[in-house]
Structures are given as C-alpha cells and as structure tokens.
Nucleic acid binder design. Structure first.
Lengths: 224, 224
DNA sequence: TATTGCTTTAATGCATACATTGATGTGTGC
DNA sequence: GCACACATCAATGTATGCATTAAAGCAATA
C-alpha cells in the first residue's frame, strides 16, 4: 500500500510560492497587486492563484480587497499582542500535558536537538539558524503533544508572527534568556513535572511577547 | 461615510448555504457529492462553489477528495476531544483576562441576558433555545475580551463542535449543572475575580468535555 | 484651485470549455 | 468463478471569456 503523495498541483505551487514570498518579506507587508499580475508572475492563469489566495486569506496572511487586488497584511503591534496572548494560553497547557505523559529521552530527542541547535547558533552568531531552531522546538513540542487541531492553529499563528520576529531579531539583545528558557523547559519535561513545565513556558511566552511588543512600539517600524 | 456593506456575492451565498446545511445536519457527516452536483443544487456554476468549499475545508467542515467530491467530515470522538482541549485552554484565560478588567454590569449585560435565556429555556424545556443561548454566552464573552483572532479561532471550533452537540443534546440529562456554571462564572466576572473565573470556566469545560465524550463513545453513534 | 460629472480603464466574479486522469464497468482468458 | 487488461465515463484542475462595476483620469464649471 503506497502512501498517496499529493501530486503538486498549480494551486499548491501558487500557495507555497506566495507563502514563501510573504514569509521572507520579499513581498513585504502592505504589498498589493491585482490577481492578473500575480498570476503572470507565477506563470499560470488566475484560477489557481485565486484559490491559493483564498487559502492565504483564511490563514491571515493576505487580504483580498475587491478591485484592488491582494494585499499582504501589515505587521501591527496589536496583531502580535493577540497572537502572543494565544501562544501564552495554549502552549503552556500543551507542554504540561506532554510532561504528564512522562516522555522518554528518546521521545524528547527532537526537542533536545532543537535546543542544541539554538545554542550552537548562538555560539556562531547565526541568528537565522537560531530562529529556525527555536521554531522547530515549538513545532516538535506540538507534534509530541499530538492534538492535530492545536498544531494547525498554532502553526498558522507561527506563520503570521514569523515576519515580525525576523524583522525584530536583529534589533534586540542576543537571545540568551530565551535559549535558557528552552533548556529549562526541556528539563522540566524530562522530569515529568507538569506544573513547572507550564509555569516556565508561560513565563517564556510572556517575556517574548514583552520584548517583541516593546521593539515594535519603540522603533515604530515601517510595517505597513 | 458609509460602512461598506459586503455585497452578497455567489461565493458568499454558497458558503453560507453550505455551512448552514452542514451545521443543521441536513448534509450529514459523511455526506459526499461531486462539485457539479452541489453547484447544480445551489443553482450556480462550479466556480463559486469550489471557492466556498475551499474555505469550508480550511475551516475543518468538509474535506475535498480528488475525484470523489466534497465530503462532510464525520464527527469523531477524537475530534471533539481535540476541540474541547482547546476550549479548556483558551476560554478560561480569556474569561480571567476579562474579569481582570473589572467589567461593569452594563458591559456584562449580553452575558446576563444569555444566562437568563438559558434558564428560561430550561423552564420551557426548549433544548434548542438552550443550546443557542449557551453558544451566545460564549461568543459574547469573547467579544468582550476583544482578541479578534481568538474569537475567530474559537468560532471556527464552535462550528465544528456544533453538530456533535446538537446530536447529543437530547441524549443526556437536562443541563442543569452547565446552566449553573454560567451563573457562577458570570458572578465571578462581576466580582472581577480573575482566578475564580478561570477555575470555574476550566471546570465548566472539563465537565462538558467529559459528558460529551462519554455519550459519543457509549452510544457509538452513526457519525460517519 | 476645488468640485462635480463623465469617460475610460481594468479588476473582479462568475460561467464555461477542455485536457488530464482516476474510477468504473466490461469482456476475455484462465 | 476470478483476475486482469482495456475501454468508457466523469470529476477535477486549469484556462479563458465576458459582463459588471469600481476606480482613475479628465474635463468643464464655479
């Protein structure tokens, strides 16, 4: 029995390409273009592009404005506030639930690896790698927890937050504390200490939100 | 300045109609039909139907199976478990945050009304009205809290859970406890007691999940 | 110059056409 | 009766055409 590999179709291509352009800020916040133009750029007709855009709109990355085309959503401090509030609610509970299952070292390996990668990245001053590893930690944690809907929701929000994080990444202190947070959380998970895991995670997200929002508000970045 | 009223377009119609059919179980879990058939039934071409279906898929109500058409997702106990776990994480925090703002009686009026409606519905043995009022309570609460993304996420999940709730509504005891929960939560909100609000809400959702899952598993309902 | 109204332009929303390709059914050989 | 190859059918994925209508440009007027 073969696993049905979803054949890459044009809609899927358009979706991937556009999402990548947006995440990478190559299509910056506020960028706007009519469907025909995007279609031309992607070398396909309007139909698959339109369908991809509908998905991206549902995921909160673009806005479809009648007669004006698709607009890449701006990065507003309020949006990040909303997003981080949700992180702060969901992730600590998910992590605590995972801790309660008394996961084995082997199971936690992806998290150990991600944490190690974060530390390595700090040593080599590679902030992009750091951000990537940080992301991986959070995603793997959710996978381990196993609630697929929860994963889906949070991944959508990670995508939304990604651009802001990349922009602010170099405007703040080296993320020593954040890296240490991960180390601590991992430790609590290994010990199966649910309450400690939850508390640590909550603090982790509260701090992250505080830092991010400070930067966004102080620097008044050109995010529209 | 006039508020731009989103003119009802065919896609929007298709979306609303299909969503309504699904929520009401007129298109029952497991129902499957090819796009052309749905389009014919709605009296429009495939294009708007397809676009509506893409949205509904993103919202977890249908599944688009290549060559087989759109399929209304089944109601599985595991899905409800996932959903209620998310409720249990998000709503208590949101309610606690609201309590922390020391809301006035006037602000809480929609919740008072909803609670009263629940009690009235119990008196008159109108379970549908009860469910409706229950829903309203939760939605209004989120509105008051103000995190739009949070509202969006939870509303999507309410929709997903709706069908299961309606099916099980008459298979369980009269929801006295649940109604009382709302009364208590409202009281805690009025008192601005964040921690009590959170605790009550969490218990409320935990109990609801327990009951719902029990019914789903025991009755082995034909939900596929 | 600012305002109003008209003309032009062009993007969307939708319908339709069509090629591709998986699913279904039939017939043949064993 | 069963398996397999093949022919048929039909649904999707995509392209394209077209009417509608908002936006932008322009002109005439105050």
């Amino acid at each position: 029995m073969k696993t049905p590999i979803p054949k890459p179709t044009r809609v899927a291509d358009a979706y991937e390409m556009l999402k990548d352009e947006i995440r990478s800020n190559r299509m910056p916040p506020g960028f706007q273009a009519p469907e025909p133009e995007i279609a031309a750029r992607l070398g396909m007709s309007r139909t698959p592009v339109r369908e991809a855009l509908i998905r991206l709109q549902a995921e909160g990355l673009v806005e479809l404005i009648p007669r004006r085309g698709a607009r890449v959503l701006p990065i507003r401090a309020e949006d990040m506030q909303e997003i981080y509030e949700i992180f702060t609610s969901l992730e600590p509970d998910a992590a605590a639930a995972l801790a309660r299952t008394n996961p084995t070292q082997a199971q936690l390996q992806p998290l150990t690896d991600a944490t190690a990668a974060m530390e390595r990245a700090l040593d080599t001053d590679d902030l992009d790698a750091w951000a990537e590893a940080d992301d991986q930690f959070h995603r793997h944690l959710l996978n381990l927890h196993g609630n697929r809907r929860l994963s889906g929701i949070l991944e959508t929000l990670y995508d939304q937050a990604h651009r802001a994080r990349m922009i602010t990444l170099r405007l703040r202190e080296v993320p020593l504390q954040s890296t240490q947070d991960h180390r601590d959380i991992l430790e609590a998970l290994k010990n199966g200490d649910a309450e400690r895991t939850r508390a640590l995670f909550r603090r982790h997200r509260e701090r992250a939100a505080f830092e991010l929002l400070n930067i966004l508000e102080n620097y008044k970045l050109p995010l529209l």
